[in-house]
Simulated scan of single mutants.
Amino acid sequence: VDIVVLLPKGRCSRTQELQMTTVLKDNVHVFGVEGNSDELDAPIKAVLADAAFVEKHGLLSLNSLNWSRVLVQMAHYFFAYFRCAPSLDVCPLPTVEVVVPTGAGGNLAAGCAAVKMGLPVRLVVVVNHNDIVHRAIRQGDFSLSEAVRPSLASAMDIQVPYNMERIFWLFSGSSGQVTRALMEQFERTQSLRLPEELHSKPSQVLPCACLRSQVPGGGPGCRADPG
């Protein structure tokens, strides 16, 4: 098995870069890629969409483009709930609040799926200035900002959270037709106003979102919407 690691060049901390570039294994290949995380993800998605190419070369993605990654994270929510719930002998079961730092939204999609399965957790979404998930949940505005703004949390510096497609599917009654229409419009225009019936459902499950400023060289700041 060969492992190919792609990191956004100049957008990770020195410590993060060293963690990835000092692995002394012959089957680990690390490349610094020009551009932000969205630009890095685009060719990966294109390659994985070519089923014949994937089968020929035995390719597999370990990020949340791969549904298996989301499935594993769903199990994390159940494990954490059973460890953190004050009691399992009451009805209804108590709610446990889980804070979810969010970039591409894989962990968030897993949490939403767990909620749909009946797990009583309250998901608190945390983003930085790249706040498309925050705007989608609070305002129904799923549209790109002018540019990705770098922060100390480079994994959250994303404007195209591709797992929102899965969240839209979950809250549209598992409608592939609705989800496809939404995502095709987003790909064409990079701007999408969510239908009210779809916007309201995630807002009920994700009642609170926080936007925190962590831009290198910038002043501190925090804006929060109360749940």
Rank of each mutant, 00 (worst) to 15 (best):
V124M: 02
H76R: 10
E197I: 14
V98F: 02
V100N: 00
E165V: 11
V98P: 01
A136F: 08
A136Y: 11
R149A: 10
C222Q: 11
F78H: 12
V96A: 04
A155I: 13
V121R: 03
Q159G: 11
P161Y: 05
P150W: 07
V124A: 05
Q214S: 13
L194S: 04
R14V: 14
L119H: 12
V126Q: 07
L93S: 06
S64V: 13
A147V: 12
G227L: 09
D141N: 10
C91S: 10
L192R: 07
Q19T: 14
I132Q: 12
L65N: 05
H134C: 03
Q204A: 08
L24I: 09
L18P: 06
K56E: 06
D225S: 08
D38K: 13
L6N: 13
V124S: 03
P220T: 10
T22A: 08
T15F: 00
I132P: 04
L88R: 00
L59G: 05
V125P: 08
C208T: 12
L24M: 15
R149G: 04
L170R: 06
S174E: 09
N27F: 00
E184W: 01
G227C: 06
R193K: 04
C84E: 07
M117Q: 11
G111C: 07
A181F: 15
H134Y: 03
L7T: 03
L24T: 15
M164D: 03
A155R: 14
C112V: 10
E34D: 13
C91V: 15
L71Q: 04
A136L: 09
L152I: 07
D2G: 14
G176W: 03
A80N: 04
M183N: 14
S87M: 01
P161V: 11
Q159S: 04
F53L: 11
F186E: 07
P150G: 02
M156L: 13
L144G: 06
V125D: 05
V33G: 02
L206T: 14
P150V: 05
L40F: 14
E165F: 15
A75I: 15
R122G: 06
S37T: 14
A49E: 03
L108E: 01
A109V: 06
G217W: 00
L65P: 00
V124L: 09
V1F: 03
W169P: 04
L7K: 08
S172L: 09
A209Q: 02
C12V: 10
R212L: 11
H199F: 08
V90A: 08
Q16T: 10
S203Y: 04
L60H: 10
G118V: 15
S174I: 05
R149M: 11
A209E: 00
S61T: 14
F79P: 02
V148L: 05
L18Y: 05
R223N: 06
D2N: 15
S143M: 12
R212Q: 11
T102N: 01
Q73W: 01
L198T: 08
S175R: 08
K45E: 08
L211Y: 01
C84A: 13
I167N: 01
R166A: 07
V124T: 09
S151W: 06
D89Y: 00
N130L: 03
D26E: 07
P92Q: 07
G105F: 09
V47I: 14
Q177D: 09
E197Y: 11
L88Q: 01
M74Q: 08
V160R: 15
P92H: 05
F82T: 06
